[in-house]
Amino acid sequence: MCEANAYFVRNGEEELIMESVDLIEPESDDTWRLVGIFGDRKTIKGRIKQMNLVDHKILFEQ
């Protein structure tokens, strides 16, 4: 499986946003639509800080 979990990084801590993210689409400046493997969707505001695909993590910051 190639999906990853998405997290916000706040004060050096990772806060889970969504598990099993399959697709990330930009909506506007610093706004992203996350789509999970089961079709669940979430829109977040932030910037991509890091994508670590080996560890299946996508890190966002505000």
Rank of each mutant, 00 (worst) to 15 (best):
C2V: 10
E3Y: 02
E3P: 03
A4G: 13
N5P: 06
N5S: 15
N5Q: 11
N5L: 13
N5Y: 14
N5R: 14
N5F: 14
A6G: 12
Y7I: 13
Y7P: 00
Y7R: 13
Y7L: 11
Y7F: 15
Y7G: 08
Y7T: 07
F8S: 01
F8D: 03
F8H: 00
V9D: 11
V9H: 03
R10I: 03
R10W: 01
N11T: 12
N11P: 13
G12Y: 01
G12C: 05
E13I: 03
E13W: 00
E13S: 05
E14N: 07
E14H: 01
E14C: 02
E14F: 01
E15P: 00
L16I: 00
L16K: 01
L16R: 01
L16F: 02
I17T: 07
I17L: 14
I17E: 12
M18R: 03
E19Q: 08
S20D: 09
S20G: 02
S20H: 08
S20T: 05
V21F: 00
V21H: 00
V21I: 04
V21M: 02
D22G: 03
D22Q: 07
D22T: 00
I24Q: 04
I24T: 08
E25F: 10
E25L: 14
E25N: 05
P26V: 15
E27W: 08
E27Y: 13
E27T: 09
S28M: 07
S28R: 09
S28L: 04
D29G: 15
D29M: 14
T31I: 12
T31C: 08
W32G: 02
R33M: 10
R33I: 06
R33V: 06
R33H: 07
V35L: 03
V35S: 10
V35T: 15
V35M: 02
V35C: 05
G36S: 15
G36H: 03
I37Q: 01
I37K: 04
G39S: 12
G39E: 08
G39D: 13
G39C: 06
D40M: 02
D40W: 01
R41W: 00
R41M: 11
T43H: 10
I44E: 08
I44A: 09
I44W: 05
I44C: 09
I44L: 10
K45D: 14
K45M: 14
G46P: 01
R47A: 15
R47E: 14
I48Q: 07
I48R: 12
I48M: 12
I48Y: 12
K49N: 06
K49M: 09
K49T: 05
M51C: 10
N52Y: 06
L53I: 10
L53W: 14
L53H: 14
V54M: 10
V54E: 13
V54S: 06
D55Y: 09
D55I: 02
H56W: 07
H56N: 14
H56E: 14
H56S: 13
I58C: 12
I58V: 15
I58W: 02
L59V: 05
L59Q: 04
E61Q: 09
E61W: 00
E61I: 06
Q62D: 11
Q62I: 10
Q62A: 09
